[in-house]
């Protein structure tokens, strides 16, 4: 994926994205994954920009969108890290509806409360509206 997609392919990719719900779903999924792996995402960002530069302005914008959509793909099946070799790549899902209930139940047992008072409890009342936008 790193730089071998040409201009026309990128354009086709955008069309495909527009046409297919499935592709859009995949696009969202990749973004979720990329959120979880910001580090890898940031590493991928550099070649992406370099690729876009030589193109005409309008095409560049389109190509960039194409790359933003697909750049995280190489990290979608994360390479197993040495220490966690036995763990399967996780499927990213939205926060469970009861996330705040779990956090409230969990928070009281966190040793952090011992030196931070109840500030970490703020997580347990986080605005679900804000979370869902991610």
């Amino acid at each position: 994926m790193d730089g071998e997609l040409d201009e026309r392919d990128a354009g086709d990719t955008i069309d495909t994205l527009g046409r297919e719900r499935e592709a859009l779903e995949a696009w969202r999924t990749y973004h979720l994954i990329s959120d979880a792996m910001q580090m890898s995402h940031r590493l991928a960002a550099r070649p992406r920009l370099r690729f876009a530069l030589p193109l005409a302005a309008s095409v560049a914008a389109v190509a960039l969108v194409g790359w933003v959509a697909f750049a995280p793909q190489p990290v979608a099946p994360p390479a197993p890290a040495p220490v966690v070799a036995e763990a399967k790549p996780p499927v990213m899902v939205p926060l469970p509806a009861a996330a705040n209930d779990y956090l409230l139940a969990h928070q009281g047992f966190s040793p952090r409360v011992s030196f931070q008072g109840m500030a970490p409890y703020v997580r347990t009342v986080s605005d679900p509206g804000q979370e869902n936008r991610r």
Binding site: D35, A36, P90, V91, M92, V93, P94, L95, P96, A97, A99, Y102, L103, R123, S126, E131
Partner: peptide
Amino acid sequence: RDVVRTGLASMGAIHIYT
């Protein structure tokens, strides 16, 4: 009643795995 969605969710330093 609700469907269980298995997988990983995250919020800052918190991870939730079902």
